[in-house]
């Protein structure tokens, strides 16, 4: 963390808290060369279609953070109605519902919750959303198949 000096106090505080007191099932570690870039790992929540999966994400804090939301993206391929092929996430708090009172911690918790509650009525991945609506059992099977292929350690 060589670039720590120019970093806002808020980001330092959030990072310290994330490392000292991590959220269960979530790890977020800042990159050695860029303290605004985090390598994130989220465990698929229990009793969700993503149980047992280990998902890698990248999180970046833009210059105007916390006035602007962090940029978050799945690196691991995932079959989810609100996450597209490029890993982009459809989540209101990452867009218009962002508030500077939210934090890295709360954002990652929201993403974990999105895994527990896929919302096919607000789709970003139409293929997944259509299957979710037509045949939820097969959609969940597909999600599990993706985990076997891409999200198992």
């Amino acid at each position: 963390m060589s670039s720590l000096s120019g970093l806002p106090r808020r980001i330092i505080k959030e990072t310290e808290k994330l490392l000292q007191d991590p959220v269960p099932g979530i790890s977020a570690v800042p990159h050695e060369d860029n303290a605004r870039y985090f390598n994130v790992i989220i465990q698929g929540p229990d009793s969700s279609p993503y149980e047992g999966g280990t998902f890698k994400l990248e999180l970046f804090l833009p210059d105007d953070y916390p006035m602007a939301p962090p940029k978050v993206r799945f690196l691991t391929k995932i079959f989810h109605p609100n996450i597209d092929r490029l890993g982009r996430i459809c989540l209101d708090i990452l867009k218009d519902k962002w508030s500077p009172a939210l934090q890295i911690r709360t954002v990652l918790l929201s993403i974990q919750a999105l895994l527990s509650a896929p919302n096919p009525d607000d789709p970003l991945n139409n293929e997944a959303a259509d299957l979710w609506k037509k045949d939820e059992r097969r959609a969940i099977e597909t999600a599990r198949e993706y985990i076997r292929l891409y999200a198992s350690e």
Partner: peptide
């Protein structure tokens, strides 16, 4: 509650 009495934006 998370950050006690500190500002919600700068947390400091």
């Amino acid at each position: 509650s998370e950050d006690g009495t500190n500002c919600a934006i700068c947390l400091s």
